[in-house]
Amino acid sequence: MLDIQRFRQLNEQAKLLADEIGNLLIEVFHYLALFVIGASIVWSAVVAYGGMMLQGHATIGDILLLFIYLELGAMVGIYFKTNLMPVRCLIYIAITALARLLIADIQAHHQADMGILLVSGGILLLALSTVIIRKPSDDT
């Protein structure tokens, strides 16, 4: 009877140790992945900025691209500190990307068409979604 209790205790200790090791490995992967993502954002931003420098000027689309990189970096930083995915940052990135697309389309075609209306509607929809996300629910 004593051997069975001792075996159960050892089994529980082994499970706890395995859980701790698993949690440690997940946390190490989490931080490593965040550093890789952050470094990739910085690298991409530097390459984009270098391209602008080689051109000798920056377009409004280039500047909006730098804002996208800035928002991505902020999102990684927020996630790093809080372990919460900042959904609003993703929406802001999408709004900036659509604004960049809209400006590029207008610069290329110089005429109004249905695409401009659709992209503008998408921006409006995303802007409304930020208002909905910000609003506290009545359940609290």
Rank of each mutant, 00 (worst) to 15 (best):
L102R: 07
A14Q: 09
V47I: 15
N83D: 10
A74N: 13
A14S: 09
A97G: 08
A45T: 03
Q111W: 01
D62F: 06
I95S: 03
I106Q: 03
I91R: 04
K15D: 13
N11E: 12
I60A: 14
L16S: 13
Q5W: 03
V87C: 09
H30N: 08
G77C: 11
F80C: 06
L54H: 05
E20R: 15
V87L: 15
Q5A: 05
S129L: 10
L54P: 02
I63L: 15
V47N: 06
F29V: 11
A18I: 11
E27P: 00
T59K: 03
I4Y: 12
I132C: 04
Y69M: 10
I106M: 13
D105K: 10
R8V: 08
H109D: 03
V36K: 05
M53L: 15
G51V: 04
P86A: 00
G51A: 07
G121N: 02
H110N: 10
S137K: 14
R8P: 00
D139C: 02
I78S: 13
A108Q: 11
V46C: 08
S40Q: 07
K135N: 10
H109M: 07
S129F: 10
M114G: 00
I26S: 12
S129N: 07
I103W: 13
T59N: 05
L16W: 06
Q55A: 14
V119E: 01
Q55L: 14
G61R: 00
L118S: 04
A108F: 08
V46N: 02
A94C: 08
R88E: 11
I123Q: 01
D113S: 13
G51I: 06
L101E: 05
I95P: 05
A104Q: 09
D3I: 07
A48T: 05
L24I: 04
T130H: 00
N11K: 10
L54E: 12
A14Y: 11
Q107P: 00
V36Q: 00
K81M: 13
H57F: 15
I91D: 00
A58K: 03
A127Y: 01
